[in-house]
Amino acid sequence: MDLFTAYEPWQLIAALAAAFGSAYVRGLTGFGMAILLVPVLALALTPIDAVLLANFLSIFIGMSEIVRLVRGAERSAWIIAGIVLLTAPLGFIALSLTTPSVARLIVALIAFSAFLAVLLPRRPAAQPGMVATGGVGVVSGLMTGYAGMPGPPVVPYYVGRDIPRETAKASMMLIFTIAPFAGLATGAVLEVLDWQLALLALGLFPAVLIGNKLGDRASGRMPDPVWRTFVGVVLAGAALAAFLRLL
């Protein structure tokens, strides 16, 4: 299938706008690109193709700023990312066996659970123990494979702690750069990865790059309490949009 001719122009324009908007939110909050982008892409693509396309875009934008992410991330980010790589294939296999309607329901529940998690009181800055960190990695890996969304367990892990904003953002972004490799590798092994998605991702990438840059600049001018409130608003909006789509 030729991905550049299989869809109407309005669908490609919608994908471009979604790529820009979700990347802006990523630059502003440190997360949110996949959570916002996958449901919109799924309007034009199959759920599997939407996840894989989001994976390509997450890798492209993450590699464009990898030096800054490695320098600023907490050590726990490497642990979580490693576990994600090991467990994501299980989530992707589950996605390949699930009907689109069920997959969309689960994606909506994932987004809603992340919103509830950030409402909890902030915890001390100290890194949680290995059990908690490992659990975040496992759940994030399953969500990476199933919905292309490693964020729901990762965001509360960092944003919910009293650590510097830039440390939280760099840690989340590093995980979100590494995690998609597992999804793409699994898709290739299962022979459901259409490599034309990489070309489509390249076509959308300029919008992602610009949106991410503008969002990062806006983040630098935003007070920390406002930033954390915006994180909750983004998660709430993603959950609401996902549930509305089910109706």
Score class of each variant (00 low, 15 high):
Ala218Val: 11
Arg123Tyr: 01
Leu119Ser: 08
Val231Cys: 13
Trp10Val: 12
Asn55Gly: 14
Gly141Pro: 07
Phe230Ala: 14
Tyr7Trp: 11
Ala23Asp: 00
Gly72Cys: 09
Ile79Lys: 15
Ser58Tyr: 05
Leu16Trp: 09
Phe243Gln: 07
Leu85Ser: 10
Ala125Ser: 15
Leu43Trp: 11
Leu57Met: 12
Gly91Ala: 05
Val136Met: 08
Asp216Gly: 09
Ser113Gln: 09
Ala117Cys: 05
Phe181Val: 15
Pro164Gly: 05
Gly160Trp: 00
Leu12Lys: 14
Val159Tyr: 03
Ala238Gln: 07
Arg75Gln: 12
Pro153Asn: 09
Val231Lys: 10
Phe181Arg: 11
Trp195Gly: 11
Pro153Leu: 07
Leu244Asp: 06
Ala18Arg: 02
Tyr146Met: 15
Tyr157Ser: 02
Val155Phe: 02
Thr5Val: 08
Leu142Ser: 04
Val38His: 03
Val154Gln: 04
Gly187Arg: 01
Phe112Gly: 12
Pro9Cys: 02
Val208Asp: 05
Ser113Asp: 04
Ala132Thr: 12
Ala185Leu: 12
Phe205Asp: 07
Gly211Cys: 00
Gln196Pro: 07
Met1Pro: 07
Val138Leu: 08
Leu142Arg: 00
Arg71Gln: 14
Met222Thr: 14
Arg123Val: 07
Phe176Ile: 05
Ile83Asn: 10
Pro156Gly: 03
Ile35Thr: 15
Ala73Gln: 09
Tyr146Ser: 13
Pro206Met: 09
Leu199Val: 13
Pro152Tyr: 05
Ala88Tyr: 00
Leu202Glu: 06
Gly237Leu: 06
Ala242Asn: 14
Asp224Lys: 14
Val138Pro: 04
Tyr24Gly: 10
